[in-house]
């Protein structure tokens, strides 16, 4: 008889805490119109990636009667070299692009945070070895490396692509997390935790990680744009086999097959993926401003 009431009592506490942090987040986002626009853009593309393939089921329609048609009522963004609707291609292609970029960012966050925490907390030999590895990852020319790798490994499916991208991109996160850890480990609450004889695992996971999470989240958002650029670039150059239609494949065909650089007819076809990437970048940059303020209370008080 006591168990349900206990459960109800413990369940009642977290929602209230959550709701206050939610209202704080809402206040921060609503303070500047730019942040609302940024969040709106991100939500819009996320919905496109999730719902897109359901919106246009089946294959791309090919219409030889209207090749390179200008934007019209039937084709809002015009048509491509095969007469397919550009808008449909953009919407359907969004899932691959965003899924891969998010997976890569997740991979980067896990590896980068792990390396940075261990290096910053233990210092000494582990630190110098891990930081040498981080420097190595940071200096190696990532994009040329990806192109060279593509000769032996056709990593076109989302999981492999994000693995490869993540492996070349965790250096920045590791460095940021390490410097945060180095400064946090001298703070009072961590000294207290060490003095209490808490196990290292507890200190790292329960004390350090929550304090570092905001920085990781910001790095994550920034790295998503970088990964979108890298994967779309690989498809654009045509070094990765085309498994499905996505923004990079569209750009490749617009520039190299469609001759978009010499004929303004392919305008919608060429510009649509470019504008999508630009908008996504704008969305992330605008929204980062809000995230920054949310996690840096000093900024909040000043403005």
């Amino acid at each position: 008889m006591t168990a349900p009431t206990l459960g109800a009592a413990t369940a009642a506490v977290p929602p209230r805490r959550r709701s206050t942090s939610w209202t704080a987040a809402r206040r921060v986002v609503l303070r500047k119109p730019g942040r609302v626009i940024g969040l709106g853009i991100l939500v819009f593309f996320a919905l496109m990636a999730i719902l897109g393939p359901y919106l246009y089921p089946g294959q791309l329609a090919v219409d030889p009667e209207s090749i390179y048609a200008p934007p019209s009522g039937a084709h809002w963004l015009g048509t491509d070299f095969a007469g397919s609707d550009v808008l449909q291609e953009i919407v359907v292609g969004a899932r691959y692009v965003l899924l891969t970029a998010s997976l890569s960012a997740l991979f980067t966050a896990v590896v980068g945070t792990g390396v940075g925490l261990v290096a910053g907390y233990h210092r000494g030999l582990a630190d110098s070895v891990l930081m040498r590895a981080t420097d190595f990852i940071l200096t190696i020319p990532a994009f040329p490396l990806l192109i060279v790798l593509s000769t032996v490994w056709s990593f076109a499916n989302p999981l492999e692509m994000s693995l490869v991208l993540g492996l070349t991109g965790w250096g920045g996160v590791a460095r940021a997390v390490r410097s945060q850890t180095l400064s946090l480990r001298e703070r009072g609450f961590l000294e207290a935790a060490r003095g209490l004889g808490l196990p290292t695992r507890h200190i790292i996971v329960k004390e350090l990680l929550p304090n570092i999470a905001p920085y990781v989240a910001m790095q994550l958002l920034l790295s998503v744009i970088g990964f979108i650029g890298a994967e779309v670039g690989l498809f654009f150059l045509g070094v990765v086999p085309f498994s499905s239609s996505n923004w990079g494949v569209m750009l490749n065909q617009a520039v190299f097959a469609g001759g978009a650089m010499n004929s303004p007819e392919a305008l919608g076809y060429l510009l649509a993926p470019l504008v999508c990437i630009l908008l996504l970048t704008l969305g992330v940059v605008l929204f980062l401003d809000a995230v920054d303020e949310l996690f840096n209370p000093r900024l909040r008080e000043r403005s």
Partner: peptide, 25 residues
Amino acid sequence: LSGSLVAGVPSFVLALLLAFLFHTL
């Protein structure tokens, strides 16, 4: 804002836009 935006945009997007605007258009 222009700085953060340009720093984030992938290189080929910039290149294609410049080429399209100044050459084709």
